[in-house]
């Protein structure tokens, strides 16, 4: 269970709320700056990677603090996080196939 005192726990929650807010603002700002200034020159992949990393960061905070996973026994946390690894190959395979279909469409255009 949580080792923080009630006041500390309350403060922690609002702190995480602020962190998530800042990260979201940063994401949106990056998206808009890219859209208005750098769309032509910079490859989208750069910003996309930034978005993916920041989203993972938000996910980390939500799971560890809001859903309390950081304070649970490690064994339970492991059983919850391991299935996500299966998704990794799924995501890679599906994106790869999507690209392949695009190349086929262009081939047979």
């Amino acid at each position: 269970m949580s080792t923080l005192s009630p006041d500390a726990a309350r403060q922690r929650v609002w702190k995480v709320c602020r962190i998530l807010g800042y990260v979201t603002i940063f994401e949106v700002a990056a998206a808009l700056i890219y859209f208005y200034f750098f769309k032509e020159d910079v490859p989208k992949l750069l910003v996309s990677s930034l978005f993916i990393i920041l989203s993972a960061l938000k996910a980390y905070f939500i799971m560890s603090e809001f859903m309390h996973l950081k304070y649970e026994l490690k064994a339970m946390t492991l059983t919850i996080l391991t299935p996500f690894l299966f998704l990794v190959w799924g995501v890679i395979a599906f994106l790869w196939e999507g690209e392949y279909w695009l190349s086929l469409k262009e081939l047979w255009r």
Partner: peptide
């Protein structure tokens, strides 16, 4: 068991490397 599914799909014309 979670990472082998497309062996049912070898003949679909999917990317041969995958």
């Amino acid at each position: 068991s979670f990472i082998v599914w497309a062996h049912h799909m070898f003949m679909t014309g999917m990317n041969p490397f995958i």
